[in-house]
Nucleic acid binder design. Structure first.
Lengths: 157, 157
DNA sequence: TTTATGCATTAATGTAGATTAAGAAATTTA
DNA sequence: TAAATTTCTTAATCTACATTAATGCATAAA
């Protein structure tokens, strides 16, 4: 239950590491992500204050995801060992978010996904760099940039 | 704990229905899916024998997903009411599958996703119609068809 | 201050997969 | 069985987004 401070860009966990933990974010912003075989990053989730960032592997399995800090942050690492914090509701919530993300990725265009992202995580847009938001949306930074222009233009009219 | 028989194409649950249940599959094959605003189906998961098919909403919320039978099946509906079958491990497993699916959708090409699907669910390929597999992969049936040819051609050489 | 290094933008060109359409096979229904 | 319906395939065309590359702007380092 100790709070620890981490600085921007500090890596908390790497893919393949053992003893995966959960991280409760007191302040700041974390992210979890993978790196594919072409070396490309894919952001899995953002973790602003109040969120818990976890790689859903059992504590004795190697991690699937990298976790690092986008901003200087204060976090509380939580051991996964005991069956303590089985907050089932949070699990179900998490599954639903993923469920929606899968559906989004399958059915919605990049513009729609961006719109959805804005309305769901309005404050993260300002805090995370563009290329990370692009990565979360599953598009390139270039595509995000032009997409934003199109949006502006069509709204201005 | 009663087993019930359902026939091919029988719908167990519609989006918006209340009193969502889980369905343990004794034999046969179920699927869960959404229908987007363009009327297009997106298969969320296949449930062959041994699997439990669930829409992860709390029992008093309206369903997000449709669930129906791809083959004549024998299933056991499970009430979600009590906190009985909180098999946490299954939850975590489910999240991991989703986690992988998201990563797949973001980083892998249609061919790679197909390869992955084949190796993960070899028997479903033969049992579900192509257009459903295409839907699961997030591509059109036409794209799946041509993709299969390319695969064959490159292997024959 | 100057010089780097990283990040965002724009534009030209390329490509995976969507769409459309038509026909062939297979399966279901009568 | 034939007729109807559903499923699968093929090919032509189209489009959203990727890739590449060049340019401007930050922030950070020297």
């Amino acid at each position: 239950m100790e709070k620890i401070k981490v600085v921007k860009k500090q890596i908390l966990q790497r893919k393949g590491d053992l003893h995966s933990k959960s991280y409760k974010v007191e302040s700041g912003l974390l992210r979890s992500y993978t790196i594919d075989d072409k070396g490309k990053e894919h952001i899995f989730m953002f973790g602003p204050e109040g969120w818990i960032v976890t790689d859903y592997v059992s504590p004795n399995e190697p991690c699937e995801l990298y976790i690092d800090a986008i901003e200087d942050s204060v976090i509380v690492p939580i051991e996964k060992t005991s069956s303590q914090d089985i907050d089932l509701k949070k699990f179900i919530k998490r599954i639903r978010v993923l469920q929606n993300r899968v559906i989004m990725l399958m059915s919605a265009s990049a513009v729609d996904r961006y719109e959805h992202f804005i309305s769901t995580y309005p404050n993260i847009i300002q805090r995370a760099p563009q290329h990370m938001i692009a990565s979360y949306l599953g598009i390139t930074p270039e595509a995000l940039s032009t997409l934003k222009n199109q949006r502006l233009r069509s709204k201005k009219k």
